[in-house]
Nucleic acid binder design. Sequence first.
DNA 1: TTTTAGCACTTCTTTCGTTCGAGTGCTAAA
DNA 2: TTTAGCACTCGAACGAAAGAAGTGCTAAAA
Lengths: 351, 351
Amino acid sequence: MLLDDRKKRILEAIIEEYNNTAEPVGSTKIANDYNLGFSPATIRNEMASLEELGYLEQPHTSAGRVPSSKGYRLYIDNIMKEKNLTAKEKAVIDEILQNDITKIENLIHEATNILSRLTNYASIAMGPEIENCSVEEIKLVKIGNNRLMIVILADNGIIKESLVNYDGVIPEENIEIFNNFLNYKLKGRNFREIYENINSYVENELYNISNNIVPLMVEINNLLVDGNSKVYMEGATNMLALPELKKVDTLKNFLNIIETKDAIKELMKSGYDGNINVYIGQETAFDDLKDFTIITYKQSLNDKEVGTIGIIGPKRMDYKKVIPTIKYLGEAIQQKINQGGKKDVRDDGEE
Amino acid sequence: MLLDDRKKRILEAIIEEYNNTAEPVGSTKIANDYNLGFSPATIRNEMASLEELGYLEQPHTSAGRVPSSKGYRLYIDNIMKEKNLTAKEKAVIDEILQNDITKIENLIHEATNILSRLTNYASIAMGPEIENCSVEEIKLVKIGNNRLMIVILADNGIIKESLVNYDGVIPEENIEIFNNFLNYKLKGRNFREIYENINSYVENELYNISNNIVPLMVEINNLLVDGNSKVYMEGATNMLALPELKKVDTLKNFLNIIETKDAIKELMKSGYDGNINVYIGQETAFDDLKDFTIITYKQSLNDKEVGTIGIIGPKRMDYKKVIPTIKYLGEAIQQKINQGGKKDVRDDGEE
DNA sequence: TTTTAGCACTTCTTTCGTTCGAGTGCTAAA
DNA sequence: TTTAGCACTCGAACGAAAGAAGTGCTAAAA
């Protein structure tokens, strides 16, 4: 259903006014400050009509109007003009990403940091689901005399590493044997597949060399599922300053959201790669989220998901600024991921 | 200045009552519920006296009394009996720590997780200051075809690792040369010393082999200071439910504390190793902390600090439970650290 | 001498009615 | 079709009054 131009302009004015004040917006305010060329009475009529259509809401009879989720949706899709970042803002982001961050997880973690500072909302990030990871290479490295570092490189560029302690000194030959064995057994396999069949991979063959293989395999298994689609959040306390959280109910909802993170996880899993996904209030099925908006950006490498970044903020958000910000950051990070993950010509068959 | 027994018992009762209710405590309540064998009038006299001595405070004339920082201090040092953890509670902690966590940082990070869940306050942790780390071993590992992982093992057991991307394929010989060179130059040196003199370590000699050594050294330098005495915090939102944070001022102070973390950092640096350190409200010079208590436990390995764990909560805290909890966890973690730092005796896996 | 009952006093909290202001919807005129 | 005018609604702000909690002091009891 399309709105005529006048209604759109009024809706836009209301949303912008509401963004600034967080108070219900009255007809006179719009008539005076947004010179649309109509009297308060006319605007009043239009507002009544916009409410009828579901784009506005009224807290009580004698109050002004507040944009509904549907109103914001229309605003985002049809009305607002995105405000590109200034050269300066871009420079800030670029500068931060300049520090050679090569591990995808660190990159994504850094993103939450940037996002919460840039938007002043809570930023969220999620690592890849293990279904999306397969072993590309596994490496054992002797650290000191009695520790082994396990490094697993996944085909989507994710790197996981961990340590195991050993009893006594580890003979170099054993490391190489283990190394070869592990690569032979695990290379190319999906993380989840390995996790579920770990026992079948270690058979008698290896026990003979050393039963130290057991704690090693246990740790590898931990490593595979470690942080599986775990949600990180930063800057949640930014949110506390928001007027919307003055209402006890809304605050409780928010605390609920960040405590369980289920809703966030689910939304982050859905959505399209390499694109902004915006979920406004009741657009999701989660009741706790009814006063909040979640915006996400999925990162991938060679068509494999590696993680998702985003923010959670109040529905009342400066979308025309926030969306381009996340877009820019998402793309910048995507570029860094691609850079680090570029597979160029393999030279020798080392392994 | 010692208090007579009756005053102590009254102070104890007041503190315990206040812990439960978060409301100023009146004489009648104490007389009725804590059968000390005195009438409200007598208790009233004693309360006036305890206030005179600085152990209690009165919000206003017609209100009950509230324990002061000095009151809590006396309570902790002289009055309360620590309540040991139940076997069950210990089992929970042991169980969580059972998962072979070998990296000290992960261990400390895991501790914050446990602490915030166990205490329902905000838990804090700080990594080691780089002054306390010296290079024990440095290792370069080729990952895939064009990435190098740098692993640095410090003498206090801290392990840091990072990745650098390379243009083109890295010849194996170069890695070995770099490796030897780095160990030769850096082994035994203090992190800070290296950080400040990095340029003098890389001279012409290495450029000739490959100028790829430059990004490598840059990354090593980043790695050395990465997370230097950085404060981690978890469960800050637990605190929001507290009645003390209903007061806007107190909330602001708290937000200030977690935003800057300066006060926390300073307190965590002071204090004794392997021991509980308790800082109650005005006992610190930080005005923002006047309504909060910070409890810390410093971890070390071979007399070298490796980090500090702790909590921040309201002054009104169930000290006789919280203190043993942190103590137990601190000691458990210390044990794991010592274990990892020496040799882990482990015969074989169970599964 | 110590303890306690009794009571006047202080201060905060709650409640309730009133006023005030913001903003609406409707009607009738422009 | 737009707008001025106006009665109406409802929450917010204010202030007075009542009520609750708890004190400190005095004088009697133990």
